[in-house]
Each structure stands twice: as C-alpha cells, then as structure tokens.
Design a protein around this nucleic acid. Structure first.
Length: 850
RNA sequence: GCGAGCGUGGCGAAACUGGUAGACGCAAGGGACUUAAAAUCCCUCGACUUCGGUCAUGCGGGUUCGACCCCCGCCGCUCGCACCA
C-alpha cells in the first residue's frame, strides 16, 4: 500500500486543471444559474500569509461546491495595487513604486497558485495599471458631470514631516504612523464624493441584506451613517446681533420637547460666530485657540475637561421670551448638526456638567411617573421617559408627543422645521501622493476646473519621479502637470492629487465581469454576474470598503453604467489566523520554524532549535512579521502538502472566529489525508448485507450533514462529519460492492472542496475517467439519511435514567404505553406514582413522579 | 459612556427550533508492532464516587416536565463608535 504523496499528486492535479482551463468562467451564459464568489482582493505587500490563505480557501470551498451543484461560477482574483507602502519602499530603498508593486504581485501570484484555488486567472488585473485606473477616471468624470464630485475646503490630518495628508486610520494617538510627527489639522481644498446623497438609500438597502450579511456589519454601517431625526430652529438675538448674523443662531436638537429647559446656547469654537467674535476680540481668540489645543486623539477627548466662555450675546427663547446666554464651548462639534446646540442641563449629562461648572440654570421639564412638582436634578441628568412639566403648552404630554408638539409650534412660528441629520460625512478622496489614480481634471486660470476630455484619457502617471524629498512627486515633476487648457488652449495645470485607494476597490468586482471592456463597465456582463453572491473578507472593512463599494455601485447604477445597486448579496467576515509567540531571554522574537515544543508533566516548554536556549511562550497573536509568529504557505506545502493546510485552517475553529495555527493541528489534518487515501487504496470486497445497509445509512447521513454544513459556512462541523465518516468506513469494513462504491464516490466528492487534489486522486483510483471537478455534488436519499429506529432517553423528573429503542415516528401515546410497561422503568420508579408523561416524538421521554 | 458579541474539559471546539452536554481534532497517559526509534494501529481521557450514583456549560436568581439555549441581575473578556446635541 503506497503512501499518498502530496508533493507529486498536487502539482499533477494542478497541471491537469490548468490544461483543461477548468476555472474559466463562461463568457456567455450556458443557461445554468450563475454564482459569483469573491474574496476581498489583496494588497500586494509581497507575501501571501496564512490569513490570506484561509480567506481564499473559504471562497474556494464555496466556489467548488457551487460548481458541483451546477452553477456557472465566477471566481476571479486581482490586486489592490496602489497605496502608500510602495512609496515608502521607494523612499527607503530607492526602488520605483511600480517595480516594487509588480514584482510583489509576481511573487504573490506564484504563492497563491500553490494553494490550488479554483480561480479564473484570465480575468486578473492590478488597479495600478492604466488599463484599470483609466476606466476609473472615465467614470469619475461621469460622476463629476452628475454633480457627485465636488471640491471644497475641508479639514484634514496633515503630517508636517512627510508633507502629506493622512487618513484618519493613519493617525495614531495624534501622530503620523510613519513619521511620528504630531499631526496638524489643516484646511485644504479637497475633492469629495457626495456619499451623503445616498445616506438614506444606504440605510434602506441594509434591510434587504438581513440574513445574508452579519448583523454586526449592518449595524456598524447604520451607526456610522448615524441618521437622527429632530428639529432645526433659529434662535433670534436679544439686542444687537453681530454683523452678518442678523437672522440668529441655527441649532439642531433631537430633544425639542425639552425646549423649556434651555439653560444656554452653545457654539463650537469653529462656528462662524465664534470665529467672528474671535476676530474682534483677542480674549475670545485666545479661548478658541485653547479649545483647539486639546488634540484630536480619542484619549485626549476622553480626558478633556469641559470649558466654555460667555460671549455676552443673548438670544430669546422662542416660547417664553426668556433671555438665554450664548457660550462658546469646547465640547460642541463644528461638523455635526449646525455646530451649535441649545443646552438643556436637566436632561443631558454634558450640558449638566457644563451648567454646574459655570452656574447656569438647571430647569427640569421631564419627570418620571410618580414624581411631583419638586422633582429636581442632582449630579445626574434625567434622560428617562416621563411627562412634561414646567413647560406651558407641553405640560402633561409624554416625551414623544411633546417632541411633535414642539416641532409643530416652531414650524408654525416660522422659526424652524423638523430635520434629519447624519453623522456620515462626504468622502474626501484627495491624496497628495504619487502612487494612486490621478484625478483627471485640469485647472485653468481663465476657465476654472475642467474635466480631462475623454479622448485624452487615461491620464497616466509619469514614470520619472523622485522620492528623495518629502511631498508629492507629481507636484514637483518638471513637465507632467503643465498642459494646455482643453477649452481656451492657454497654459493650464493638471490636478496633481490622486484618488484614495478605496476608490480603486469600490468597483473592481464589476470590472471582473469583463476586465477588457472598452467602457469602464460592460453593463451586460456586469448585470449578468452581479451582485456578488458570496463576498468574503475581514470585518475591518465593515464601514470602509464595504460602505464605499455600496455607494459607488449605487452612483454608477444611477449613471447608467450598470443596473446593480447592491453589489454584495451575501457577505461573510472571516476570522484571522493567529499563532503563539516565542521570545528569548533578551526579548528577541523567534520564528516558529526555529522552535521545539515539548510537554512534560503537563507543562509546555519551548527551546530554540538553532541555539538550544530556553524560550518564553508568549500570547497568541495575529501573525505578523514584527513578532515573527508567521508560517509561510510554502513551508506547509513542503512539509504536509497544501491539502492538509487547507483542511486545517478550516477544521479547527468556526470560520468567523480566529483560528490558532498549531503544528499538531496540521499534522492531524495530514494524518486524515493519509488515512483517506489508504481507505481508497483498499480493494472493494463483495460486501455483507448488514454492513452494507449500515454503511449506506452513514453515507446518506454524511451527505446531508456535510452539504448543510458547507452551505451554512459551518466548515469546521462539516469537516468533523467527514472525519466521522472515515471512521464509519473503517467500522463497516466488511461492507463492499455497490454500498462501498457508493460511499467512496460520495466521500471523494464531499471532500473535494476542502482537499481538491486528494479528491481527484481518489476519484481516479475509483476508476473514474474524468475529473472530480466535473462530477456533480452527491444527493442524499432522505429515507436513508434517517435511521428507522431511534434511541429515546428516558428521564425521571428531568434526569436521565435509561433508554429504549423504538421505531422512528412512533406516536407519543404508543411510546408512553411501551415505557409504562417496561419492567426496568417500573423498577426504577420504586412504586412512585407517575403524574405526567412527556413524550417528544423521536426525541425524549420524561416521567414526572410525585 | 453608548452599541454589539462572547464565556462549555488541559487546549481548539460540538450540541439543529428548549430535549442523552463535550461530536471531531490537538495535547496527554497506557498498550501492540519494532533490536530501537519514527510511522502506523488499539484503548483511556470533565470532576468526585461507597461504582448505586452525585456534581458539572462564568456567578446568583427565575420560567419550564426539561435550560449551554429563554427571562432578570451581576462578573469577566473581545470588537465597534466615542463630547453626535
């Protein structure tokens, strides 16, 4: 009996698949239903790690299942190839970002191909090539014409050392992640995409995704968009208004019911009125500067004390005419609502803290049921339900009714209207960087901002750039930006900013439908393949990529480029691959390949193979180069074969959870591979009636369980069933003939999504001519998948006291009769009276005794 | 602070809709084969036990014939958002 040798079998099968062009998705419909499986495409950092591998293997399992179930499957791969690391490499090592990126792609493509994934490589593309980003420029200009792209001044994170804008994620504790410099807030003219136009639609769309997207991700998106309903109203000045603000101060509130409790009006330090006052009064200017000093990091905000300054301005309460003081306060956000609030200290904790500090009035206007007129506020604002009091025409109403009444009154007075506001901001897409998609516009002093004419697209990045000084290489390039104005022909300049790389990944799934189309999106192909039926990736993109892609799909659909607004019908967010960490006494990290683990008296210890020194076993953490706790796919392929690695990353934990990589675990998977082969390598005997029937039952049960497991993303459970089935094959070793043949045929097909190379070898061993890839998914016979006898546990007062075997489907009354006549059961009861018998069909019997 | 999720053997975990808790794997222990080792195969493996059982799914209550599962209150961990008016 020959051992199974993955080293020869795996390349053999991969060559077979490649020769057959097996994974090319059909260009035209075959009449079979379509299925689009996609994993979030990788950034070409240079190496495929186990986290990537697990992600793609999950997609591969789905792709192979769907193919076997008779779908036309599209399962493509590409590269999210623009971005900062390539420029960092250029700065640190003098290599061109394009060369660095393309050689990384080549290396990673080779590593990926080791995994035996059923990918349609004919559709591969990288977003850094003009063939892709040129099409992106084309649709960008279409959105520009439709008013979804605009330019305005916005506040950005500016890194003064690298001389570039940083995304929020790249600011860590107020410092640039690369330079370590304290990040400044700067106002810059920036390009924005009008994602807020789609805020409602993006929320509404989430409802349709219920059940196919994780609740968590839908909730995160909903919270990120942050829709809230309330009242926007004007407070008129008492006395002389400041120049230019004659109308009053507009505030937004979600608690118009508490208007009678107003204690002050608060302005953000950046509010135009604050700015105006600061310009006139150095003391106010000093205060505003003080507010800004706090720093933008979350920790700073948490620590920051509430500070404020009375402006001396007074506004009139719309209902009772009281004069209300106007303060500038550091805790009011300039970019939410209107940047101004009315403070109701009795019913808002922040307002209460502020009012107590500065001696402002605290007027309770909502009291809980049962509280009297003396209901007052201590250190805690009352935010619960109740009825209004101290509130004139609102008195006695419940909160919701009072909100509606207050809004109606303000509307009738012409001082405001009900309003909906969002937390979501428009998407700032400008980056002062080289390695990105050039924004295809031209600035002309005479004609303004103009789109690059269609026949001049793509606007291609210049190759000859330098990275020896900080800042944007495009901006200092000697010739690239100087062009003739497309309108007047005069001297003009190109936009030197590039697009946020999240734009690149917001439509690639549509480009995969036809990656060579002349137009950005081949509508017919996109409409045929989209939406992506199953999208798989990390949860870290819950509100970034996944929100942007939903927005861009809507915008492109509205622009007529395709007609699928919701790009990802199903989403699965997978967990990471984590590994123990090891370090030497002097704190150096040691890679797992150099570690020898032993267990003695239940205590695990680690030694460094190369030096023999003792190592400390550290926490289990996400695999990372810095902690050296990485395992390269190549290592696993060399040691155990890729099938064992594929099996292990899916078998040990549920796919949404992190999986801990252990050598023991892969060895276990490798043993399974060997045992499966050994089972297929045995001759099929004549059989024995009892064993044949028993094996057939196991076969059909397994088909049912594994199919359901894979379809529901319970890969670990499905694999456990497959392990169990191998046990059944061995337990019923006398089974033979058709029963065994049926069992092995089903087994080979059931394991094929997980260990496709082994499955092909087994298929051939069974005497099949074709590839298992072309075999259909096994079907189960429901009658065989269920036993005809069941074991019913017998409980007495809820404790298990015995069991009986009865025919499946036996009616409760009959079961009851059998149980009550059972001598063992009667002996158990010791003469106690049975007061009640609970029988759940095919499940359990419970006797309730006195 | 707000929101969401999780908590089960030495470890990763299973348990469909409230119905035999711990499937499957890892580690460990014992045995077979071997001159020996590796590999392979077989057995044991939640705790306690007077071997009848008893106790066990973070803790404390509750609902139910019956609770890992539902409800209430705690504790712990993870993630997201964070002065959002």
């Amino acid at each position: 009996m020959a051992r199974y040798d993955p080293k020869t079998a795996e390349p053999r099968q991969q060559a077979r698949w490649a020769a057959a062009g097996a994974f090319r998705a059909p260009e035209t419909s075959t009449g079979r239903p379509k299925y689009y499986v996609l994993e979030m495409f990788p950034y070409p950092s240079g190496n495929i790690h186990m986290g990537h591998a697990r992600n793609y293997v999950m997609g591969d399992v789905v792709a192979r299942l769907k193919r076997a179930q008779g779908f036309d499957v599209l399962h493509p791969m590409g590269w999210d190839a623009f971005g900062m690391p390539a420029e960092n490499a250029a700065m640190e090592r003098g290599v061109h970002p394009g060369d660095w990126t393309r050689s990384n792609i080549a290396a990673m493509r080779e590593q990926l191909k080791l995994l035996g994934l059923s990918l349609d490589w004919s559709r591969e593309f990288a977003t850094c090539e003009p063939e892709y980003y040129g099409k992106q420029q084309a649709w960008f200009l279409e959105l520009f014409r439709r008013g979804l792209v605009y330019r305005r001044e916005g506040t950005v994170n500016w890194d003064p050392v690298d001389a570039t804008v940083l995304a929020n994620e790249q600011v860590i504790d107020g410092r640039g992640w690369r330079s370590g410099a304290v990040v400044e807030k700067r106002k810059l003219n920036q390009w924005f995409l009008r994602i807020t136009d789609y805020a409602d639609d993006l929320i509404e769309g989430l409802k349709e995704l219920e059940g196919r997207w994780p609740d968590k991700v839908r909730l995160m998106q909903e919270n990120w968009i942050g829709r809230s309903k309330g009242l926007e109203m004007i407070w008129r000045f008492a006395g002389q208004p400041p120049e230019g603000f004659e109308d009053g101060i507009t505030v937004y509130t979600t608690r118009p019911d508490t208007l009678f409790g107003a204690g002050f009006l608060g302005l953000a330090p950046d509010h135009p009125i604050s700015q105006r006052l600061a310009a006139e009064n150095p003391e106010v200017a000093a205060f505003v500067a003080e507010c800004r000093k706090g720093g933008a990091s979350t920790a700073d905000i948490e620590q920051a004390e509430k500070i404020g300054r009375d402006t001396g301005l007074r506004v009139l309460h719309p209902f009772d005419g009281r004069e209300i003081p106007v303060w500038i306060a550091n805790f009011i956000l300039s970019d939410y609502g209107t940047g101004a609030v009315f403070g109701c200290p009795a019913h808002d904790q922040r307002d209460l803290d502020f009012a107590r500090k500065y001696g402002l009035p605290v007027i309770p206007v909502v009291r809980p049921d049962g509280a009297g007129d003396d209901f007052s506020i201590g250190d805690e604002a009352y935010v619960g339900p109740g009825r209004l009091f101290h509130s004139d025409f609102l008195n006695g109403m419940e909160v919701e009714a009072a909100k509606a009444a207050a809004i109606a009154r303000i509307e009738a007075m012409g001082q405001g209207a009900g309003a909906t506001v969002y937390r979501l901001r428009d998407w700032g897409v400008s980056r002062q960087r080289y390695w990105g998609c050039p924004i295809p516009v031209i600035h002309c002093d005479a004609c303004g901002v103009l789109p690059v004419p269609g026949d001049q697209l793509p606007v291609v990045l210049p190759e000859d750039v330098t990275f020896d000084v900080p800042g944007n290489p495009l901006d200092r390039h000697p010739t690239w930006k100087h062009v003739a104005c497309p309108d007047c022909g005069g001297a003009a300049t190109r936009e030197t900013e590039t697009l946020d790389t999240f734009v690149d990944s917001s439509w690639y799934f549509a480009r995969f439908a036809d990656p060579n189309a002349a137009e950005p999106i081949n509508a017919a192909a996109a409409n045929r393949w989209l939406p992506v039926d199953q999208y798989i990736g990390g949860v870290e993109h819950a509100v970034l990529h996944l929100l942007y892609a939903r927005f861009i799909s809507r915008a492109l659909s509205d622009a007529g480029l395709m007609s699928v607004k919701e790009p990802f019908a199903g989403l699965f967010t997978q967990g990471m691959v984590v590994h123990e960490t090891y370090r030497t006494a002097d704190g150096q990290w040691v890679e797992p390949a150099d570690v020898d683990l032993t267990t003695e008296a239940g205590k695990r210890s680690a030694r460094r193979l190369s030096t023999g020194e003792a190592l400390a076993i550290g926490d289990v953490e996400k695999m990372s180069k810095s902690k050296k706790n990485v395992v390269a796919p190549q290592e696993i392929v060399d040691l155990h074969g890729v099938d064992a690695g594929r099996l292990f990353v899916l078998s040990d934990s549920p796919p949404e959870r992190d999986v801990q990589w252990t050598t023991g675990g892969v060895e276990g998977a490798s043993r399974f591979v060997q045992r499966v082969w050994a089972e297929f390598d045995r001759e099929i005997g004549p059989g024995a009636p009892d064993a044949d029937v028993a094996l057939r039952r196991e076969t059909h049960k397994t088909i049912k369980a594994v199919t359901e497991g894979v379809e529901q993303f319970r890969f670990n459970s499905a694999i456990a069933k497959l392990y169990g089935f191998l046990g059944a094959l061995r337990a019923h070793e006398s089974a033979g003939g058709e029963a065994r043949r049926e069992a092995l045929s089903a087994f080979a097909r059931l394991i094929s999504p997980f260990v496709p190379h082994l499955a092909e070898e087994c298929w051939t061993r069974l005497g099949e001519d074709g590839m298992i890839l072309d075999a259909s998914w096994p079907a189960f016979d429901p009658a065989l998948a269920a036993d005809d006898e069941v074991t019913l546990p017998i409980q007495v007062n809820g404790k298990r006291r015995g069991e009986i075997r009865v025919a499946r489907g036996l009616e409760p009354a009959e079961v009851e009769a059998i149980v009550l006549a059972d001598s063992e059961v009667l002996a158990r009861l010791e003469g106690q009276t049975v007061r009640k018998v609970v029988v759940v069909k095919d499940r359990i019997v419970n006797l309730v005794v006195a």
